[in-house]
Design a protein around this nucleic acid. Structure first.
Lengths: 223, 223, 223, 223
DNA sequence: AATGAATGAGTTTTCATTCAT
DNA sequence: TATGAATGAAAACTCATTCAT
């Protein structure tokens, strides 16, 4: 009895013995640590420390470091997917919808550097974790459908050029933003400016939207 | 005589007693290993093994693992810079010159995955190595001048729109190609296609050039 | 039951799962290894082996080799301090008390060569570890108070000369014993005798006490 | 001819190709490095660097690190021996001679910390190097004869007590000075004073001479 | 569910020494 | 005599993972 009481007190005091909370804390800590140091550079010790739980729980909940990375990756993917779902582009005219999509894509990367970091690492190792997940395409088909539908609407309306492949277009608009953020530091060094400032980011945002929309214009010169 | 011959053979076979060759071999091995595994994942042992020299020579010639990474980075940067210098865009009309520049940028990344890999790692660690190198901006100014000059010529000729910032434009054309290669594996998984095939690469190449040139066209609709 | 018994046996045999015992074993092994080989010559591997624990525990419990040395040093200092406290000199008349102190000082060094060895090393490196410890003076003030009090009593009684500085005196009596032990081997070589024999040690002990007490006598010739 | 000229120029320019000078430089560098870092802590690379010669010369001239240590030890021993020989105590009355001897012993250690450092290391390793040198006792007999002769003269004159063993006495006066210097840093820490200052050294010098001479006085009280 | 202790295999780095000229 | 290159063995320290409770 006494022992039980002691434990209960401990739990209440420290907020422990909430398995789901421990799991969540670990996952959040993993995303941060993997983003900062990469898969190879991240430390299991540090992840547990950040999460405020015992290191062994990593193995208890996730199996091993690699599986924890996979879970972290799925976590960030599912977060962006959820945000994309909420975009409601169908309610907007095609040009406005597309601008919104490009802007969202830019803003999301601006606000989620950990997404970029995890993706880079995953690509370094040949997308071993993502590749092992058979439901990846299904998970992302809504996105490509969204792009395709908006492109279609714009083409039908005559505001977009008629020969734009949705996958290529998606990669292009993603690339315009992604590269700016993922290589921000070396670009800053190369061009001897600080591309990390709020002003530089805002400028880039305008350029990206403008650049994408310009590329999408019908080619009047061929008339 | 025989002794001399034996020795010469030994030297040729094993590449001994040629310090410059040892250094070069280490640097080449470092580029490969760092590209494959990243800074944290790369193994000094493995680099020495690949180079066929004693591990201690890494420390002898380069100081430590970090400095070796810096040297590898400078190596790949200087290689692309050398190629860029040989472009001779001034001899071409602006549109052709720009297409060539975009095409080159794409092709170089296609052929040099190690450049992308090293750059990604450098950015993960906040460009610590590039930032420490004071001659980085100077090293790359020729490139941005090239873009600016070509843009200027095209704008003067009226074949390019008049409001294109050269730095933003450079980042955009680089991003269109870079993202495709750096994230090739996850993109392949997401879209359930193999973006690594020769055919997919050729298609992407056409798209990138087309996309960039389209964005560069003067806006006829505002006439 | 059987399983429990087996486990208990295992624990007793191997000393597992007793963190305090592991720590103590490491500290004891460190004192020995550092005494034998010095800070630079000591091997962390060997310390762990001697202690019968995993090498990593050194880093787990003590941080690094240097901190382990510091801990070993504090250990030997605290041991001699504990012994000094137990001397109870105040109960003896001054001359007897002083003889006892000098004798103790000699005996302690005779029985604790590791104390000398660690001290020598600490001095070689500029007392970096001791210097970093702010409670060193406090730790040793009882000793110097003891010497000062005994000297005072003897001077008041007229059995000691009146102008003896306690710090200088302490250094002198320590030096008379310390040098004999710390340089025992080279002295033996130089004088072509074995100063390590029980007989030689006993002779030296008599000499040291006699020498110190003689130096302490009031100077009758000045009457 | 041309080759010869080139070499001569090289020699004159760099002062190389003077074997004896190289040897001397190495020995001097070895004494310093071993004194600072100890036998285990000293680096052959560093010794060569300090001497300004190629590392291989260490092996060429001295065999290996251990033999170099032996040579360094013999070097410092022979230096103090030379100084002791020049003392000319026989010309002074016994008390003055003895004061001079004690003072010299103190001053030499004050000015030659490297002697103390090398000796400490040699003792740590069980005087392995000194023990291997068969001419050690012979090398030092002049010293002990000097002490014995001076003691004898003083005893005959009645200014020294009659029962002082020369070896014990030598060890005592050496110890009074040696311990102060060898343990200067820890003593400073323990007593919370700086025993390294010129003033503290001068004070100690007076104390040591006084202490030794007091211990040497005939015991008037037994009359 | 949770923990602190413990481990073995590895990783960077160091270093005395030898090689080839 | 002198040198720079090269090496193998070992050192400190790290880290993912498992154990015992």
């Amino acid at each position: 009895m006494d022992e039980t009481k002691r434990r209960t007190a401990l739990i209440e005091r420290q907020g422990k013995r909430d398995p789901e909370a421990s799991r969540r804390a670990l996952l959040r800590a993993a995303v941060t640590e993997f983003a900062e140091k990469g898969l190879a550079g991240a430390r299991v010790d540090e992840i547990a420390r950040r999460a405020g739980v015992n290191k062994q729980l990593v193995y208890h909940y996730f199996g091993n470091k690699d599986d924890l990375f996979r879970a972290a990756l799925e976590q960030v993917y599912s977060e962006i997917r959820a945000r994309e779902k909420a975009l409601a582009l169908a309610d907007l005219p095609p040009a406005a919808a597309m601008e919104r999509l490009v802007g969202f894509s830019f803003d999301y990367l601006a606000e989620h550097p950990e997404f970029i970091a995890l993706l880079n690492d995953e690509n370094r190792y040949g997308a071993a974790h993502v590749g092992a997940s058979p439901d990846m395409p299904a998970m992302h088909s809504p996105l490509i459908s969204l792009v395709a539908a908006t492109l279609d609407r714009g083409m039908r309306d005559g505001v977009f050029r008629g020969d734009m492949d949705p996958v290529q277009f998606y990669i292009s608009i993603a690339g315009l933003s992604y590269f700016f953020f993922s290589n921000n530091r070396t670009l800053s060094a190369i061009f001897a400016t600080n591309l990390d400032s709020a002003k530089a980011v805002a400028m880039r945002r305008r350029h990206v939207i403008d650049f994408a929309m310009a590329a999408l214009r019908p080619d009047k010169s061929t008339n």
